[in-house]
Simulated scan of single mutants.
Amino acid sequence: MRITELRNLGPASARMLAAVGIHTVADLEAAGSAEAYRRLRGAGTPGLSRNLLWAMEGALLDIDWRNLPQELRAELLAEIGEG
């Protein structure tokens, strides 16, 4: 399955992720959303926001990113060093 087939993620997200070595859904699952976000941040990805972090986690859980529980968002922020 391609990254663009996941909920919340489109072509722009897929291009950003590919630039940091995440090309497939399996790659994203293996890295996890927090690690993927850290890679994107480390690469200085233009336009990067926390919304992509929420979108990736929602994609992995197959839920709309806007429905991520606050507790999960707090855990993700802690994982990326912003919590």
Rank of each mutant, 00 (worst) to 15 (best):
A31Y: 07
D64M: 15
L6E: 05
E75V: 03
A78Q: 15
G81F: 09
A59M: 04
N8T: 04
R7L: 15
T24Y: 10
E82K: 04
L17S: 00
P69E: 12
R38G: 03
P11F: 15
N8V: 07
E35M: 07
L9T: 12
G32A: 11
W65P: 06
D27E: 13
L76S: 04
L53Y: 09
R38P: 06
L40R: 10
E82V: 05
R41L: 08
R38C: 10
G42D: 13
D27Q: 10
A18E: 12
A31D: 05
T4V: 13
A74L: 11
G47F: 12
D27C: 11
R7F: 09
T4C: 11
L77A: 10
T45E: 10
T45L: 01
G81M: 08
G81E: 09
L17T: 03
G47E: 11
A30C: 05
R15A: 11
G58V: 09
A59I: 04
R66M: 09
D64F: 11
I80A: 01
L76G: 01
A31E: 09
A36K: 02
W54H: 06
E79D: 15
G32D: 14
R38Y: 05
V25C: 08
E75L: 08
M56Y: 11
I63S: 02
T4F: 03
G47W: 07
L61P: 02
E79G: 10
S33I: 00
G32H: 11
L48T: 03
P69W: 12
E79M: 14
E71A: 14
A26C: 02
L53M: 14
D62E: 12
M56I: 11
R2C: 03
A18P: 04
G83H: 00
W65H: 05
Q70W: 09
G83V: 01
W65L: 07
W54Y: 14
N67W: 15
S13E: 08
L9I: 15
R50A: 03
E35R: 06
E5A: 07
G10H: 14
G21N: 05
Y37L: 00
A36V: 00
V20W: 00
E29N: 05
G81K: 14
N67H: 15
E75I: 05
E29C: 06
E79N: 07
A36W: 01
L6K: 10
M16D: 13
N51Q: 12
L68N: 00
A34T: 01
A14F: 15
L61N: 08
A43M: 05
A59R: 08
L52D: 06
T4G: 07
A30F: 07
E75Y: 07
I3Q: 04
L61Q: 10
E29V: 07
R15Y: 13
G83P: 00
I22K: 00
T24H: 06
G21P: 00
P11I: 12
S33N: 01
P46A: 05
N51E: 09
D27M: 11
A43R: 12
L60N: 09
E35V: 10
T45W: 02
L6D: 05
R50Y: 06
A74W: 11
E57A: 06
E82M: 03
L48C: 03
